[in-house]
């Protein structure tokens, strides 16, 4: 009974009552994996005024399975945007939609309402 009780109280304490201790084992597998991942999509305004998808790998001539595959955080996203704007040239209109993975779901961190290269 004591052993079974310990099996139950450990995760109950941490997952129900939020008691944090390494001595108590919760069963929250992969609860932190994916948190912090950035989902980003890019569009660029063409000569005809229409927005078309922008492939950042093609733009940079970078391999699709390289470092650029994962945008690590907000700072990394800002860096990618800055580089895209530089490569696209002065006056480019690049729209960026990005969201950040959190434990509570997705959190928008960049909208495509404005030109990311402006300012």
């Amino acid at each position: 009974m004591a052993i079974a009780g310990f099996m139950i109280t450990g995760p109950a304490a941490e997952q129900v009552f939020r008691v944090q201790s390494p001595w108590l084992r919760s069963w929250t597998m992969f609860s932190a994996i994916g948190v912090g991942v950035v989902d980003a999509s890019f569009e660029i305004r063409g000569p005809d005024g229409a927005l078309v998808p922008l492939d950042r790998f093609e733009m940079f001539g970078a391999p699709r399975n390289g470092r650029l595959k994962w945008i690590q955080n907000r700072e990394d996203l800002a860096s990618v945007i800055k580089r895209l704007c530089t490569v696209a040239g002065q006056g480019a209109d690049i729209r960026v939609r990005a969201r950040l993975g959190t434990r509570g779901g997705w959190q928008a961190i960049h909208t495509d309402a404005e030109n990311a290269c402006a300012g």
Partner: peptide
């Protein structure tokens, strides 16, 4: 308790699984 941990909107909406998929497979 593994199921209990996932019994929330973030997981059941598919958002957490999408994040895990991006993390390991799709990138950003």
């Amino acid at each position: 308790f593994a199921a209990f941990d996932k019994s929330n909107h973030a997981f059941l909406s598919g958002a957490r699984l999408e994040q895990i998929f991006l993390w390991f497979y799709a990138g950003s």
